[in-house]
């Protein structure tokens, strides 16, 4: 490592961080106002998101420019690697919060409401007719006589061995295609690199397309919505955040595809590609967790 010392790249002052901060600030103000029922808030939110996208474009084009100009050495590359890995770790912890919630609800709170273990008195005095089953089609307040439930009764849930299985296969294959792309890149074979990347992007977006179809089906035919009690809550929160990550990931791969076509990467030097590939694998692994714990068992 020591050979690279002494030439660490320190960027000149940059306006992108403050632009990004202001853009996020605007989005949050807009989002907050929107949730409080202000139409102008929605407009501000749109403006803010636009500004965030503008910031990303600007910031990354600076980085790409620097990278192409050869300003980065091995050490900068390693810094980026540490940065990306810990960023992904933080995302893992974000999902952990929701998986933890799912665990708590399935293993603890719903059984307690149904009278198991510590929930004996809870069940007897508050929800005597509630039955703890998973998937939870009927919420505790539906079991009370003479009370109008705040939630929607679920007609059916989405079976694991249907579209979700197809989606699993799609995502797993996309993991393979991106690895094939990486192998092609390491051999400096540009055409297969681009083709495999294009296949990955396609698989990603098809996944999102199916997911949207599934949501529509859930909302319209199954009465499975965010408002369907805690099953709907965990289902949409987990799959929703995951779907959002797939969209982001696929978009990032799209950018990498364009950059590959422009010949930005060399067999030795392609951190951007690798960072995105790591991210994609992370999204993939989260899906497996989802598939098993949300859809399957």
């Amino acid at each position: 490592m020591s050979d690279s010392h002494g030439a660490y790249f320190i960027p000149e002052p940059s306006r992108w961080p403050i632009v990004g901060t202001l853009a996020l600030f605007l989005s949050f103000i807009g989002g907050g106002m929107m949730l409080n029922g202000s139409g102008f808030g929605t407009f501000l939110l749109g403006l803010g998101i636009g500004a965030v996208i503008y910031m990303f474009c600007g910031w990354f084009s600076d980085v790409i420019g620097e990278s192409l100009a050869g300003s980065y050495n091995k050490q900068v590359d390693v810094s980026f690697r540490w940065g990306m890995s810990w960023f992904i770790f933080s995302e893992v912890m974000f999902f952990a919060a929701f998986f933890g919630a799912l665990y708590y609800i399935r293993v603890l709170s719903v059984p307690w409401l149904g009278g198991e273990g510590a929930g004996f008195a809870t069940h007897m005095f508050l929800w005597p007719d509630f039955e703890a089953v998973w998937p939870l089609m009927m919420t505790p307040d539906m079991s009370l006589a003479g009370v109008e439930s705040k939630f929607m009764e679920i007609k059916d849930v989405i079976p694991a061995f249907d579209v979700p299985l197809v989606n699993t296969i799609l995502l797993l294959s996309s993991g393979v295609t991106i690895t094939l792309a990486h192998h092609a890149l390491k051999k400096d074979h540009r055409a297969p690199l681009c083709w495999w990347l294009a296949a990955t992007v396609l698989l990603g977006f098809v996944f999102v397309y199916f997911q949207i179809g599934e949501y529509a089906h859930a909302y319209h035919e199954l009465d499975l919505t965010m408002k369907s009690g805690v099953y709907g809550s965990t289902f949409f929160m987990l799959t929703g955040f995951h779907g959002f990550h797939v969209t982001m990931g696929a978009t990032m791969i799209l950018v990498i595809l364009v950059r590959s076509m422009k010949g930005h990467f060399s067999a030795k030097d392609h951190f951007a590609f690798e960072g995105v590939a790591w991210y994609w694998h992370f999204v993939d692994v989260v899906w497996l967790g989802l598939y098993v714990f949300v859809y399957w068992i």
């Binding site: 409401l113 008195a121 508050l126």
Partner: peptide
């Protein structure tokens, strides 16, 4: 604690 929806013994 007195928690809405749950009973403590």
């Amino acid at each position: 604690d007195a928690i809405p929806g749950f009973i403590n013994d």
